[in-house]
Amino acid sequence: MNTVIEGKDIMVRIRGKELLDVKKIGLKKGEIFAVIGPNGAGKSTLLRVMALLQVPQRGEIYFKGEKITQKERIRIRRKMAVVFQEPLFLNDTVIENIALGLRIRGIKHREAIERAKYWLERFKVEKLSNRWARSLSGGEAQRVSLARAFALEPEVLFLDEPFSNLDVFIRESLIADFFEVLKTTGITTFFITHDLEEVMLFANRVMVLMGGKVVQEGTPQELLENPKTDELKRFIQAWERFKFKMLRML
């Protein structure tokens, strides 16, 4: 079994409203698992449940085949890293923000800073090291967030639309740098996106979520060739029309 993290029979209900109902989801070692779906589909909720940040009303999470008990949640969380939809920083410098997760794991300050520096360099933002983290621009903040996640050397990486709030120029270069790092590290990745193109380019598998339910799961190719619902068909057609228009404009 090379499934790293797995969720079974997950149901999230808040104030009587069912937000999520996923029978089975599993990430294999080293794969990039994309989740797509419209706004409010439950993607971020699913991420929080899988990353042990939210307790579902029903269902279990397994890590390498073992059911995670309440007591083990913190220990397993330390094998994961999360990049949230919006970059969040403590009121401190960039380098201290990156080192924090390592400090929490009991790593000595000096070593944590060394490792933080290395990852800042990998993401080409070593110049920001001593800046106040909350004063960064959107693009800078997202690079630093990614560096912070990789610095933890996680076994599973969770990303919630990390490129969605960026302009095209910054986006292109960040995506390129990010996937270069991801490829060389080979980290198992749970990747939420709105963008079919990102799915087609990078994902090994993709799950489509709508109204809290799984509509389809498979390879990106399968999704393109055989979308299972009319809604999904329209979504893909809209995307293809858009791509076609873009091509004509060039």
Partner: peptide, 15 residues
Amino acid sequence: VDKKLRLHIMSLGAT
């Protein structure tokens, strides 16, 4: 203290 920031600290594996 922002609830989302708390979530972030939690995701870092804080006790």
